[in-house]
């Protein structure tokens, strides 16, 4: 499919840094016009052929889109919800023909697995967890970790890992030791299948051993931000590197609030230090609203309605994509299957870009 449009980085003239570009490769138009909340790419198998499909979530409808030709997508399946709206799609690696969604109003009340009936192809739903859920993450090897329940902290909080059996049916449940603080987000520790990282409402990180369920360490980070989101974590040379964001941060006068930050922690001593702050180029307004990190690329929607991309290795912003067709961007997701970026607008339209 030949690119329909090219949007290059709008960096200040004279900036010597390398710029990236976004090429629009296709668009998913939402005829209903209802509010779009999330998008994801997942694998779907039919007649022995496994292909990447796009899953979109509007308020009460989740849709599966398949390729009909290189530029055309067709909606082939929908799941509808009568009472509780969809908050997010939960991608789970290594899983196909299954979509996981979190439903709720202000906070997650249910996690459901969506599939198709093998008899007539009709929609099927399976309730995986109900009650207040504060954090959820899909993990490699068909696992889904979530936390919530009770008042959220202390012994009321339950942290559980569900391992999904092949097919939509059986599942195995395991509990992890809960920290005393409410867990806000989870992040897998790349390259360490048995380790899991979490951020807490008390501005700390916690590490679990997923095999034993042990809570290994609580590490406080030295910054003043609240509600830290961890997007990516990896261990190198005995140290823990975490890419995080602060969606609730207020802009400071001196240097603005960074969209993303790289923090290094020694898990043995719990001492930490800030390594890198990923800020907007000078003169650009807006602060982080929501974002996604894949490999060494971070994408964010800013309060200005613009999408920004950072190369975490180079340390700077490579693309600024302003609102398209006078519609602010509302969310961005990296495709888990290739180097594509999916950007959504509130009117339900999704744009698929190739990032280079």
């Amino acid at each position: 499919c030949s690119p329909q449009q090219t949007e290059t980085a709008d960096l200040p003239v004279g900036n010597s840094l390398d710029a990236g570009s976004l090429q629009l490769v296709s668009q998913l138009k939402n005829p209903s016009g209802s509010c779009s909340v999330d998008v994801s790419v997942m694998w779907w198998e039919e007649a022995g052929l496994r292909e990447p499909c796009v899953v979109t979530a509007c308020e009460y409808v989740v849709s599966l889109w398949k390729h009909v030709d290189p530029c055309q997508w067709e909606k082939t399946q929908t799941w509808t919800f009568a009472e509780v709206p969809v908050l997010q799609i939960v991608p789970v690696p290594d899983v196909y023909n299954l979509v996981f969604v979190a439903l709720g109003n202000l906070e997650i009340r249910e996690i459901r697995a969506l599939s198709c009936s093998s008899d007539d192809g009709g929609e099927k739903q399976q309730l995986l967890r109900s009650g207040t859920v504060r954090a959820v993450l899909g993990l490699p090897r068909r696992r889904l970790v979530s936390s919530g329940g009770g008042g959220g902290a202390g012994c009321d909080q339950q942290v559980e890992v569900v391992t999904l059996a092949e097919g939509a049916g059986g599942k195995e449940k395991q509990f992890l030791m809960s920290p005393e603080e409410t867990i806000l987000t989870f992040a897998e520790l790349q390259g360490m299948q048995e380790a899991l990282l979490g951020s807490t409402a008390g501005n700390s990180f916690v590490i679990w051993n997923l095999k034993t369920g042990q809570l290994l360490k609580k590490m406080s980070i030295d910054n003043s931000y609240q509600a830290t989101v961890c997007h990516k974590a990896y261990s190198e040379m005995g140290l823990l590197f975490v890419v995080l964001s602060h969606p609730c941060a207020k802009q400071t006068e001196s240097w603005g609030s960074p969209a993303f930050e790289l923090v290094v922690i020694n898990p043995k001593t719990t001492l930490s230090a800030g390594m890198m702050r990923y800020c907007l180029p000078p003169g650009q307004a807006g602060r982080f609203l929501e974002g996604d990190v894949k490999d060494h690329f971070a994408a964010a929607v800013l309060t200005s309605g613009t999408v920004a991309i950072w190369d975490l290795l180079l340390g700077h912003c490579t693309v600024l994509a302003p609102p398209s067709s006078n519609q602010s961007w509302s969310f961005v997701k990296w495709s888990g299957t290739d180097s594509h970026l999916l950007a959504g607008q509130k009117d339900g339209n999704i744009f698929i870009y190739r990032y280079s």
Binding site: M177, M192, E194, A195, I207, N209, T212, Q214, L215, L216, K217, S235, M237, G238, L239, V264, I265, N266, P267, K268, T269, L271, S272, A273, G274, M275
Partner: peptide, 23 residues
């Protein structure tokens, strides 16, 4: 940042913390 500011580093931190943490 200076690595020395983070204290002694262990390459086997995950195994060591797992053996020290309560079961």
């Amino acid at each position: 940042c200076n690595k020395a500011d983070l204290g002694p580093i262990s390459l086997n931190w995950f195994e060591e913390l797992s053996s020290e943490a309560p079961p």
